[in-house]
Amino acid sequence: MMVQQTTPEAAVSGVTTAAELNVAGTRGPSFGEPIVEYLLRLGDDRLILGHRLSEWCGHGPILEEDIALANIALDLVGASSMLLGLAGELEGKDRDADALAFFREGVQYRNALIVELPRGDFGFTIMRQFLFDAYSVVTLDALASCGHAGLAAIAAKSLKEDKYHLRHSSEWVVRLGDGTEESHNRVQASLNELWRYTGELFERDTIDEAVAAVGITLDRDALHAKWESIVNDVLQRATLTIPEKTVMASGGRRGRHTEHLGHLLSVMQSVARAHPGATW
């Protein structure tokens, strides 16, 4: 369902809204100008992955790793808070980061599918984190010098954190892959399962083209090549093999999610919905 929304700003500046662009197959209402959709994609990736990582709190394999995963979860939720905050500001409907995080339905989420998959075992969590961290570092690196000042500032700040995340997950991938037979098999199985969700990270649609108007012009092919080079290098050191010929899953950017997102949201949003506007 598309809801036609033309904001006053759009009418003045002549910027096309996402609704007018009619991104094929999008479920749920769209969010006004393309930059808002674009920020939601970035913010939702980090919010959902941050929540998934936070599920490890108190369950980490050792104390140090428990703390490390919780740190990374906080970094990701912090980044999503900035991105969703900016999205809410630009949307101009008086919705802040909390309103966007806790009062949207699943079909209104724009995260890639890879981040919503259940956390699995430690090997799965680390492999997912590694594939995402590598994507995030190359993407934020490019966004840090984009023409949209607000987004560039957030990207520059998050990039520092994400470089550490990548270092952390890369080292673990190598240790698990090149560790025991058991750890190798588990992390290889995780890679086999996750690979089909990596294509979506480098998809390009009308939103990506439309945000060129506000100075965001990423070369997805170049980013993909950089990502592949990082991933190939680490997986080789980890003695892991990339699965051959995989059909890539897709849909998250258009609100078409796996069954897992609804369960995650029911937990993540329950407190905010039971006590709207509560503070402590």
Binding site: W56, H59, G60, P61, I62, D121, F122, G123, W172, R175, L176, D178, G179, T180, E182, S183, R186
Partner: peptide, 16 residues
């Protein structure tokens, strides 16, 4: 070298 983690996140056997 690295720890192997069993299905349950609470179940950790170390090879340290």
């Amino acid at each position: 070298m690295a720890a192997s983690v069993k299905d349950s996140p609470n179940d950790i056997s170390s090879n340290g």
